[in-house]
Simulated assay, not measured.
Amino acid sequence: MRSTLKRDEDAVSAAVATVLMFGGVLSIIGIMMVSMIPVIEELEGSVERHDMSSQMSLLAHQTSALSEKGMPGDSTSIELIPVDGSLEWQHLQSGMWYAATWHEDMSFRMRGALNFDDELEVRHPESVNTALCIDDLRLGPANPFYYTVPDWAERVLFTVAPGLAIPLGPVDVDLLEAGEVTDNIQLRVDGMHEIDAANYQLFTLASSHELNVFVERGNGGSTMVTPNDASPIDNTGRSWSVPLPAGTSRLHLISEDANQIELNDGASTTTHYALPSGQNQVGVAFTHTIVQQTAGVVHISSSDASRLIVQTSLESDQGITPIPSKDGQFLGHAFIAPSLEGEMVFTNPGTTSVTVTWRGGGISVAPNQSLG
């Protein structure tokens, strides 16, 4: 059987035309895509810029409304819904100005109040700022307390400060270097911890509860201890929790009236009495020397509003501490001086001479001068 193959020229031409047409369509689509991509990218960038601008304007309005709500101590919340991305709270890098005023149409603002260090910016163009009173209204483990240890520190001792929000279990204390947690300390409520600061660079303590922190340099010193229940009027108190190093320390309590003092060093509780001397314009002083084999916490309570000075060295030339006036300020007209050996220095920051008198004696201090 024979068959004859015959070339169909029309079919070949149709196939070639189809391939060429398909290639032409792809070329046209490619050219269109190349020409449209810059337009699409520009439109996308415009949309993103518009979204970002709208988001920043919305957040600025919401934060302004949040900062102006409520009174000091009130709890106020607002829901922040970003257009894109997420919001996170930076405790240590706060750069936002917060409204803090009881009056409308005032621009009293604070910045840097959330990192709890020793710097705070205040803005109040309506009048001259002469004094600023600050209190911490935060409670709970979700609001940590930060303590920045200076770079000159050699040793740090701290204990838990008694209070209404004291936890039932241990207190979490994180040691942060450059914002990173390098150590975690589980501190018992009645315990004390000691850190050799020479082993760390500039570091910060972040605690779930308020602490009493002592920073030492050299061989002991003196300091005025803040009470657990400090009076908002004159900063006196009736109870103290003092972390003391091992060795001999001296406690000196100053009050205006007769005092009953209780000391608890963890092993025993002793009661002491301080009575007035009967002399005119003379306070009541109580001094007690305590010897500890190991570092520990000493709890002190008094029946009268008092101030406590702690000496971790019995040498009179070791340490220096300022003495507040009767109203709790370090600038004042009436002071109760400690009954301790040492040197007292008077500083006159005013523009006129002042006379310091005590028990019939007196001394004159020139303006902008110190005299000891």
Rank of each mutant, 00 (worst) to 15 (best):
A206C: 08
V128Y: 04
L80I: 06
P322I: 02
S77T: 10
T223I: 10
T4I: 14
A17Q: 13
S316A: 12
R2L: 15
T312F: 02
S57M: 12
S86G: 13
S75P: 01
H103M: 12
A197T: 02
D151P: 01
M33Q: 11
L5C: 14
V225P: 00
M32W: 10
W152V: 14
V19P: 02
T321H: 03
I29C: 09
A334K: 10
M96G: 11
P232E: 07
T130W: 08
D234V: 06
L175V: 13
V298K: 01
L157P: 00
S35K: 07
M36N: 11
F335T: 03
I37G: 04
S67H: 05
N199G: 11
A153E: 02
A285Y: 08
P245S: 02
R7H: 14
S303T: 07
H252F: 05
T63Y: 08
D229I: 05
I320Q: 06
S268P: 02
D257G: 13
M96T: 15
P167N: 04
N259W: 00
D136T: 09
F214D: 07
H299D: 07
S27N: 13
E343W: 07
M33E: 09
C133A: 14
P167L: 03
T204C: 10
P245T: 00
E88W: 08
I300N: 00
S316D: 12
N115K: 04
S316E: 12
G23R: 07
I300S: 00
D172Y: 06
S249W: 01
D172S: 15
V47P: 03
L132Q: 06
R238M: 13
N129L: 15
V156L: 04
I29E: 07
A100M: 06
M344Q: 10
